[in-house]
């Protein structure tokens, strides 16, 4: 199924700039943005930019991949906790999948995530890379 590029475009604030909601009352940050703080019901918030470094809290190696990602397989997919405590899921790229483990330090990098074949729109966003400098 081909979706209009509007669907991805709407998410640029998150995918390109890691913008998140930080609620006034609880001080909690949610990624992606939300209207209501699920803990307090608070709607007063400010937009913050997430830090670009963190640690892997869990991961897997996808060996049987959806066709859109088949050329990348096997690829590591992880949830990392960023330095502000926010968690997000992304691929871990630029590394041997066997090296990925819980506790590994990663950095967020801007990468191409998927494309609609040779003709469709390109989707960009964040991936993790091992932090080596």
């Amino acid at each position: 199924m081909t979706m209009f590029s509007s669907r991805n475009w709407r998410e640029y604030q998150h995918r390109y700039r890691l913008e998140a909601s930080k609620f006034k009352k609880s001080g909690k940050t949610y990624f992606p943005k939300r209207t209501v703080d699920p803990e307090t019901g608070d709607t007063e918030q400010e937009i913050v930019k997430l830090p670009d470094e963190g640690k892997i809290v869990t991961y897997t190696v996808i060996r049987v991949a959806p066709s859109k990602f088949a050329d990348m397989a096997p690829y590591a997919l992880a949830i990392a906790e960023l330095t502000d405590g926010t968690r997000l899921m992304a691929q871990v790229t630029d590394c041997d999948v066997e090296q990925v483990k819980i506790g590994m330090d990663v950095r967020v990098e801007f990468r191409r995530i998927q494309d609609e074949g040779h003709h469709g729109v390109l989707s960009y966003g964040y991936k993790f890379v091992p932090k080596w400098f």
Binding site: D71, M72, R111, I113
Partner: peptide, 13 residues
């Protein structure tokens, strides 16, 4: 460049 890297991603970083 690996498949998830192109002129745009290199430019951003």
């Amino acid at each position: 460049p690996p498949p998830d890297m192109d002129t745009i991603t290199l430019s951003v970083e």
